[in-house]
């Protein structure tokens, strides 16, 4: 099952490589990883998406917690949460497909950010599943580039990840 793990880490050099190194050394897979500073400049927030049996996820969270720079972490998927991912897609848009692509973008509530002579750049946010669905919906349209931010997530209600 897919898990979204949110991590608050000391904003120290090398923090990211500790996480990446842990995953490669122990053979865990990372589907996506996003990292950015928070409102508190001493902290970085990482969101990583991984999958595996419960016992593997338990080990992943324990091993992450063991990293000295990790201040706190939360498996968002253990409770209700919001998740979003940003995607930019550059597609070939000529002739009939110009209209077709625009229609699909509207259905998915995306936006066309840039209209070129033969290309569109599309912005789409949503869950990873929605972004995947959008890509399938593009069908035969030629995709030139796909850029995804990786998942960001936050728990709903009283559950919060803060120091």
């Amino acid at each position: 099952m897919k898990h979204i793990i949110s991590i608050l880490m000391e904003n120290e050099p090398g923090a990211l490589s500790r996480v990446a190194g842990l995953f490669s050394a122990r053979g865990y897979n990372i589907e996506s990883l996003s990292v950015a500073p928070t409102e508190d400049e001493t902290l970085s927030r990482l969101t990583l998406v991984t999958s595996g049996a419960d016992s593997v996820i338990e080990q992943i969270t324990k091993q992450l917690n063991k990293l000295v720079d990790v201040v706190r972490l939360m498996d968002l998927t253990e409770g209700s949460h919001i998740e979003r991912e940003l995607m930019l897609v550059k597609v070939q848009a000529v002739g009939e497909s110009r209209e077709e692509v625009k229609r699909i973008v509207d259905i998915f509530r995306g936006r066309i950010l840039d209209v070129g002579q033969a290309q569109y750049i599309i912005e789409m946010t949503g869950t990873s599943e929605k972004l995947n669905a959008f890509i399938s919906a593009l069908g035969i349209t030629e995709i030139i580039e796909v850029v995804r931010s990786g998942v960001s997530g936050v728990a709903r209600g009283d559950r919060s990840l803060r120091v």
Partner: peptide, 8 residues
């Protein structure tokens, strides 16, 4: 002392 040792 190490939670990751338990159940590994």
């Amino acid at each position: 002392i190490d939670p990751s040792s338990i159940g590994k």
